[in-house]
Nucleic acid binder design. Sequence first.
DNA 1: CATCGCTATATTATCAAATATATAACGATG
DNA 2: CATCGTTATATATTTGATAATATAGCGATG
Lengths: 122, 122
Amino acid sequence: MRPVKIKIQFPMDGDIAMGPGKAQLLAAIHQHGSISAAAKSMHMSYKRAWDLVSVMNAGFKCPLVMTSVGGSHGGGAIVTEFGFKVLQHYQALQIKTEVFVLSESADLRELLVNKSESDPVS
Amino acid sequence: MRPVKIKIQFPMDGDIAMGPGKAQLLAAIHQHGSISAAAKSMHMSYKRAWDLVSVMNAGFKCPLVMTSVGGSHGGGAIVTEFGFKVLQHYQALQIKTEVFVLSESADLRELLVNKSESDPVS
DNA sequence: CATCGCTATATTATCAAATATATAACGATG
DNA sequence: CATCGTTATATATTTGATAATATAGCGATG
């Protein structure tokens, strides 16, 4: 496990408009083309995925995901250009922050017990 | 609520050695001089507080909290010098990271719906 | 016009996590 | 040496979050 875990959330009303879970789901929808397939790939119930999409769409100025119902393949969902932009922003922010915190927390991490440091500094 | 919520955790084995909740508890113990009083002040059960202290102490090279049992006042708990140092490091890190993320997420936050912006820019 | 897989939604069931409760031991002090 | 509030620990209970289940409706397509 990484030495530090960072969770960045953007609260909106009572919900979280964007966070690690939603970002991951967004990426999965983009990859699979439907909420149901994305949910399955993440071992998440369809209902939960649908709820998350609903919250995301409500929290931003434009929808991140557009769904279509019916049709030969039953319908599907696509990540909008806007949604993709949000996703990229979020992912970049997450990485930048991780780098920042890792560097800023060196002193603190020094104080933790060193577990399984199989680091043969010969 | 703040526009962004950041949670920094330091995992250790299966537990979290330090996180927002533990930092807050540490501060409360320092203030009140006992685990039980600190727990009460945070509306937390004594058991939970005691468990958190136990995890904290196990995760660092030195104990952050030392307890004494019995005595005229029943006992108590004090935050060690080491624990206080950890607390200060953590709190400083939290603030620095908040500033960082807030500045780095300006573009993203621009895309959120503006809720209740009672901002009379006359 | 029957079929298909998906969206959309509600209801119920399950489970883990937090809390509540209980109790023993501790030891300085008056 | 009885008292006190606390630590320390175990067990029971409650709660909330999550998952499971069910079902209706959609509409392009062959």
